[in-house]
Nucleic acid binder design. Structure first.
Length: 274
DNA sequence: AGCTGGTCCTGATGGC
DNA sequence: TGCCATCAGGACCAGC
């Protein structure tokens, strides 16, 4: 579910409400997530104060004094702040009880993760999960030059390069298709074959696509839910994703669906060129 | 039965 | 031959 815009929407929703909240206790009902939730997480985080809520790529960061809780929503995760703890239901795996309410982690597919990073272990940017991540697409440091340079000599498709997260983070399967449409680039183009100018256009397209989605409250696939349980609306605004056979909104040519690297890709064969 | 938002890991491939 | 980077595929799950 969650690509960068969804995670950012959750982050913003939580930040204003739980920054400086104290943690009373943690209940782990199901530790078998992508990686097992460590058994001592409750004792590690009890009495901690959440200093801020950050984000790196699609990872949420609950920063506390002695460390940081790294949260990933996987494909189907939700992280909601409940004012009153209603009875946990199926797939409600973890509750973090805070002075601002109960933070509940829900994830049917269990591709998500909750990892504690001890501050004494050093800078978070050195964490194995973060060490090889690309630049943040909404930061000033992100531009076409970064993509262009990284792409030289690479034979993989431009769509796969975006999905890899190695050059730029946060672009998932939906926004990869949407960004390439906005930039007029075929998802099948070899990364190494695109010009500097086209990467400049792509960088702009990525930033605009993600910014628009955030402004709409997160995209949301059928079931995206923000930190307050609100649904996003992006699916209504997709230009190509999920629109196979439907007319391109720009030129009316039917949108085409293909498989790339085991993932679905949507594009307009007329508007998007190699 | 086959599809679905993410991403780590393993093993194959190819260049030097 | 060996090392390295790159790339493809499988794996993890439940719900529809």
């Amino acid at each position: 579910m969650p690509e960068l815009p969804e995670v950012e929407v959750v982050r913003r929703g939580l930040e204003s409400r739980i920054a400086r909240a104290s943690i009373g206790g943690i209940t782990v009902r199901e530790p078998r997530l992508r990686w097992p939730v460590r058994a001592d997480l409750p004792s590690l985080m009890r009495d901690e104060t959440i200093e801020s809520v950050g984000r790196r790529g699609k990872y949420l960061l609950l920063r506390c004094k002695t460390g940081t809780l790294i949260v990933h929503l996987g494909m189907s995760g939700q992280f909601r702040l409940l004012s009153a703890a209603d009875a946990p239901r199926r797939h409600d795996h973890v509750d973090i009880v805070t002075s601002a309410g109960v933070l509940r982690f829900t994830d049917p597919r269990r591709f998500g993760a909750l990892l504690w990073h001890d501050a004494r272990a050093g800078d978070l940017t050195l964490h194995p999960l973060f060490a090889k991540l690309g630049v943040e697409p909404l930061s000033p440091a992100f531009d076409g030059k970064i993509l262009y340079r990284a792409s030289r000599g690479r034979s993989l498709s431009i769509k796969q390069m975006l999905l890899s997260g190695r050059e730029v983070v946060g672009v998932g399967n939906i926004y990869a298709s949407e960004s390439l449409f906005r930039a007029g680039i075929s998802p099948r183009a070899r990364a190494g074959s695109l010009s500097r100018a086209r990467y400049e256009a792509l960088a702009v397209a990525i930033r605009e696509t993600l910014t628009d989605a955030i402004a709409r409250g997160g995209s949301s696939l059928r079931d995206f839910v923000g930190s307050d349980g609100e649904q996003g609306h992006f699916q209504l605004d997709c230009q190509v994703y999920g629109r196979a056979g439907e007319p391109c909104r720009s030129c009316t040519t039917p949108i085409v669906s293909i498989r790339q690297h085991q993932r679905s890709t949507f594009f307009c064969p007329a508007c998007q060129r190699r």
